[in-house]
Simulated assay, not measured.
Amino acid sequence: MLAAGEKADAKQRLIEAALRVFGEHGFKGASTRAIAGAAGVNIAAIPYYFGGKEGLYMGVVGHIADQITARMSPGLRAAEQLASDSATTPEQRRQAMLALGDRFISMMVGTEEAALWARIMVREQFDPTEAFDVLYSRVMAPSYMAVSRLLGPLLGLPAESEELKLRIFSVIGQALIFRVARTAVLRRLEWDAYTPDRLDQIRAAVRANIIAIMDAGRPA
């Protein structure tokens, strides 16, 4: 009988292996035998720990949500606190927006784990399953709401206005493109990889665009 630590280790290895296999082949194309082999466990471990392939996939999506939340929550909490304080100045809102952009780039572009998350997240955009609801409620919606509460007053737009929602998607999308279109970015810039200096260049470019969006709401 496996000890508690061994069980936790086996579950974690299955999650890590499944993250790669599901990302490469999608849910339908992923083989539970291949996942178990990559994790170094018996195939029976999948129904034992997760109830089956579907449960394992949901476990992987929950893992992605956990990882993103852990990295983004400090910045989102700070943004929410600023947004809810009536004494917060427009400049403080602007700086909080820029800080969120920097944090997002560091997470989604500057970490190798994000390449694995992005494969599954993009698949869920094209062919959503019930897992999309997990990603939306735990990852996307909290980020959108925090940005909305910071950016809306700067632009003079109501929180539920379509214009504000579109602006927010443009803010997030311009940062996300450096992950989902990484191959095109590297080829066009003649880079071989994202280095710390190049990440600084990406942050600067995204910051310039965020500033332009925020400045659109300033009085002439």
Score class of each variant (00 low, 15 high):
residue 3 A to T: 15
residue 3 A to V: 15
residue 4 A to L: 14
residue 9 D to I: 04
residue 11 K to Y: 09
residue 13 R to F: 14
residue 13 R to M: 14
residue 15 I to C: 03
residue 16 E to S: 13
residue 16 E to P: 04
residue 26 G to C: 08
residue 30 A to E: 09
residue 33 R to Q: 14
residue 34 A to K: 11
residue 34 A to I: 09
residue 35 I to Q: 03
residue 37 G to F: 06
residue 42 N to R: 11
residue 43 I to Y: 09
residue 56 L to V: 10
residue 58 M to H: 12
residue 64 I to V: 15
residue 69 T to G: 07
residue 70 A to Y: 03
residue 72 M to L: 15
residue 75 G to K: 05
residue 75 G to T: 06
residue 84 S to M: 13
residue 86 S to Y: 07
residue 91 E to C: 02
residue 92 Q to R: 08
residue 93 R to C: 07
residue 96 A to G: 00
residue 102 D to Y: 07
residue 107 M to P: 00
residue 107 M to Q: 09
residue 107 M to A: 13
residue 111 T to A: 09
residue 111 T to I: 12
residue 117 W to D: 03
residue 121 M to F: 07
residue 127 D to C: 09
residue 129 T to R: 00
residue 130 E to G: 15
residue 131 A to Q: 01
residue 131 A to E: 00
residue 132 F to D: 02
residue 137 S to F: 03
residue 140 M to I: 13
residue 140 M to W: 12
residue 143 S to G: 07
residue 148 S to L: 05
residue 151 L to K: 01
residue 154 L to H: 00
residue 155 L to T: 02
residue 155 L to N: 00
residue 158 P to H: 02
residue 160 E to N: 14
residue 162 E to Y: 10
residue 165 K to V: 11
residue 170 S to G: 07
residue 172 I to W: 13
residue 172 I to T: 08
residue 174 Q to R: 01
residue 174 Q to M: 06
residue 175 A to N: 03
residue 176 L to Q: 05
residue 177 I to C: 12
residue 180 V to E: 13
residue 188 R to A: 14
residue 190 E to K: 12
residue 192 D to L: 13
residue 198 R to K: 14
residue 204 A to C: 08
residue 211 I to R: 09
residue 213 I to G: 00
residue 217 G to E: 03
residue 218 R to W: 03
residue 218 R to A: 14
